[in-house]
Design a protein around this nucleic acid. Structure first.
Length: 465
RNA sequence: GGUCGGAUGGCCGAGAGGCGAGGCUCAGGACUGCAAAUCCUGCUACACGGGUUCAAAUCCCGUUCCGACCUCCA
């Protein structure tokens, strides 16, 4: 596996190019992914990010890396506070409610729990320590109103990730220069307003600004330098620029490479709550299974926009069911569990900046070969292709034999199998005496119940739609 | 105004100088009592106008259209 690990290439937003991945420490990878601001239920754009980086994590693990994966929860921010007032419940109740909604969605799509999942409010101490250091070395200032700002003009490398110039930025209309030295200076810490939650600091009671938490938590769990920082494309500016500003001002090397996933769009526009075009994960899961939604969200390249439509989702699900059907047939024919393996084609695709679409083409090819092997009763060829297909699906988090997807349905499977076998025996007998009216009536009845019958050379098999 | 990205066949979606990605749909065929599943075959495109090249979807110049960030955003 070390050979595969040394062939991994990833795109780095910082230099806008794909290059060989070299870990800071041999055999280990530290990843920090900006997680959710828990102020509403997740829509499929949020969960796409989770799926994309889960695939990255699984691949890194598969090729032999010891991965530390940190995904934070932003549990304090303006929207959460507004919602708390609006719903007349405590701010922490809002945060916890939606944190759970995100956890449920991640679980439904088989996104592995992070190694660590820190909450912003649990790291106030680290944030204060960071601010103290920044003020001590002259990077930040506390003007006395309870806010703490970072002085961005002092930084040489500010805005290098987004390739912008400070003076080219559109001027904010509401820039208040009463306390800020420069309108671009951003708040590390915000003074408490009446009724808002606050924490004591040397500069007065207040709460964290959005950007500070990620620098503090990434540092706490991954150290002064780590390999990969991830997030959505829309976080490049200002969030990630500001993280870099804070962290580098503190003398930390911070992230080695930056990876950003693209959006899920509808009608060409980014899905977002404010546009009113967002589709909640749990709503879509009423139409397709979690494994199918994951297959769909993972099928486009992570840096490409994914134009959502229910038609495309359904097409994708049809494609997945074909692959799933192959694995189930393969298991029946082989009369044994399928051992996952990684084909060289799949590895090559994944090592090329996670070229999942190419990997999918390879999977389709393997399925075709495997299906032909079933027809020709070539068990050796079947075992090989089934193994590769399952291995690939496993990395993509879509292994149909994964217990997380098998669900509770299994408990009644034996009973169901017995009942349907009974009906199929009747049908087989009818077909044997060429009483096709009777055999078709049985099949039609089963079809009406959502059970599909397939006649194979070795007998009839059934599947639930 | 600045920065970044996009336009590919009926649909989704890769690729990024030359051997037609793949999937879905559709049509035909094989198999089947008929189906289903599977396999085979067919339909074969790169927004527009120039240019470079033996060769351009891919490189260069120009144009049009769409989107994102610069306020909270995955």
């Amino acid at each position: 596996m070390t050979k595969l690990a040394s062939d991994l290439n990833l795109y780095n937003t910082a230099d806008r190019a794909v290059s060989k991945f070299v870990p800071l420490e041999a055999g280990k990878v530290g990843i920090y992914l900006c997680g959710a601001t828990v102020q509403a239920p997740p829509h499929i754009g949020h969960i796409r990010s989770g799926v994309n980086f889960d695939i990255l994590r699984r691949w890194l693990t598969a090729i032999g890396y010891d991965v530390t994966f940190v995904r934070n929860v932003t549990d304090i921010d303006d929207k959460i506070l507004h919602k708390a007032v609006h719903e007349d419940i405590p701010w922490w109740a809002v945060a916890m409610k939606y944190e759970r909604a995100f956890s449920d969605a991640y679980a439904a799509l088989n996104v592995l729990p992070p190694t660590y999942e820190p909450r912003a409010t649990g790291h106030i101490t680290q944030m204060i320590e960071l601010m103290e250091a920044l003020i001590a070395n002259g990077s930040a200032y506390a003007p006395g109103n309870g806010d703490v700002y970072l002085e961005v003009r002092k930084l040489k490398s500010y805005l290098t990730l987004s390739n912008q110039k400070l003076d080219d930025l559109q001027s904010a209309d509401d820039a208040d220069l009463t306390f800020k030295k420069d309108p671009r200076d951003f708040a590390l810490w915000k003074a408490a307003k009446p009724g808002d939650p606050s924490w004591p600091t040397p500069w007065g009671d207040g709460r964290p600004g959005w950007h500070l938490e990620c620098s503090a938590m990434a540092h706490a769990y991954l150290g002064e330098a780590f390999d990969i920082h991830g997030g959505g494309l829309d976080l490049i500016f200002p969030h990630h620029e500001n993280e870099i500003a804070q962290s580098e001002s503190a003398g930390w090397k911070f992230a080695n490479i930056w990876m950003h996933n693209a959006w899920v769009t509808t009608s060409g526009e980014k899905m977002s709550k404010s546009l009113g075009n967002s589709l909640q994960v749990m709503e879509i899961l009423k139409k397709v299974r979690g494994i199918e939604l994951r297959w769909y969200l993972g099928s486009a390249h992570y840096r490409s926009m994914l134009e959502f439509s229910f038609e495309a989702l359904e097409e994708s699900s049809v494609n997945f069911r074909r692959i799933e059907g192959f694995l189930q047939r393969a298991r029946e024919v082989l009369k044994s569990e399928i051992e996952p393996s990684i084909s060289s084609e799949f590895a090559k695709a994944m090592n090329n900046d996670l070229a999942v679409p190419q990997a999918l083409a390879d999977i389709s090819e393997a399925v075709r070969i495997g299906n032909s092997a079933i027809t020709e009763n070539d068990l050796t060829a079947l075992a090989k292709s089934a193994s590769e297909v399952r291995g690939a699906l496993s990395i993509l988090g879509c292994d149909p034999f994964d217990p997380i997807f098998a669900g509770a349905a299994n408990t009644k499977k034996e009973l169901l199998d017995g009942l349907i076998s009974l009906a199929l025996e009747q049908r087989t007998a009818a077909r044997a005496r060429k009483d096709f009216a009777a055999s078709d009536a049985i099949r039609d009845s089963l079809t009406a119940l959502g059970i599909t019958i397939e006649d194979t050379p070795t007998g009839s098999r059934w599947t639930v739609n």
